[in-house]
């Protein structure tokens, strides 16, 4: 059995008891390379390294596709996430000692805005940082077109024009270390690669390199990664 099939089977077994008797859609899990999350100094990221009052960025499953890492401070999920076409899927929820650490792709499902070195318009609003748009904290919001997502509910759209939830990054917590395993929900990676072909070529030299799958990810504070964190 190859690794990919093994992962799928593990997932199905792990969630079978939970899904019995529920009308949830099937769990949507697309495996990619298993990638260890690292601190800036190259050591494995530990739960105590993640401050709930901050947001973090890492690149997964491709070296050019940004994700947000968040400690919501409390156990979250699993949650059924509904899509516009009437289907739904199961989001696993948080991982870590408290079940509070979650990750989502930081590419807005509306029109693909994502954090850049110069600025980030899509950000997490930690406790105490209230979004003017939705009047609450603990949201992920894209200020380009005012879409807001709920990280406690699998990245569901709270408000705005986004047609679908943020793509969830499936994490695991094993022996005190965090791993990214794959994605859950609808992906927009192909649209991203197509829309940003020129920009990705400038940053990575070629789209082939930009599309390389990663097996480890350095996790950075968003404030350190980007010059301007734009919240609205």
């Amino acid at each position: 059995m190859d690794r990919r099939r093994f992962l799928k089977v593990c997932t199905a077994v792990a969630f079978a008891p939970f899904m019995l008797g529920r009308s949830f859609g099937a769990e949507s899990f697309k495996p990619y390379k298993k990638a260890l999350l690292l601190r800036e100094d190259g050591k494995p990221l530990r739960p105590e390294d993640i401050d709930p009052s901050k947001e973090y960025i890492f690149f997964y499953p491709y070296r050019s596709t940004p994700c947000l890492l968040i400690d919501l401070g409390k156990k979250v999920g699993p949650v059924e996430v509904k899509l516009k076409n009437g289907t739904s899927y199961l989001w696993r929820g948080g991982v870590g000692p408290k079940g509070s650490v979650v990750a989502f792709s930081a590419i807005c499902t509306h029109q693909l805005s994502f954090p850049k070195k110069e600025y980030s318009l899509i950000n997490y609003y930690p406790e105490g940082k209230v979004s003017k748009l939705v009047g609450r904290d603990k949201v992920i919001q894209c200020c380009a077109h005012m879409s807001a997502f709920d990280p406690e509910r699998g990245g569901k759209v709270i408000e705005g024009p986004a047609p679908s939830p943020l793509t969830a990054i499936v994490l695991s917590y094993e022996d005190g270390k965090f791993y990214a395993l794959g994605t859950s929900g609808e992906e927009v990676f192909e649209d991203f690669f197509d829309a940003y072909r020129s920009e990705l070529r400038k940053v990575y030299g070629s789209t082939r390199i930009a599309k390389e799958l990663v097996d480890s990810c350095v996790v950075l504070e968003m404030e350190k990664y980007t010059e301007e964190v734009v919240r609205c």
Binding site: C108, Q111, S113, Y119, L121, C143, A144, H145, V230
Partner: peptide
């Protein structure tokens, strides 16, 4: 910044 990204997104 949001203004310019708003346009680029559209």
């Amino acid at each position: 910044i949001a203004y310019l990204e708003w346009a680029k997104g559209l």
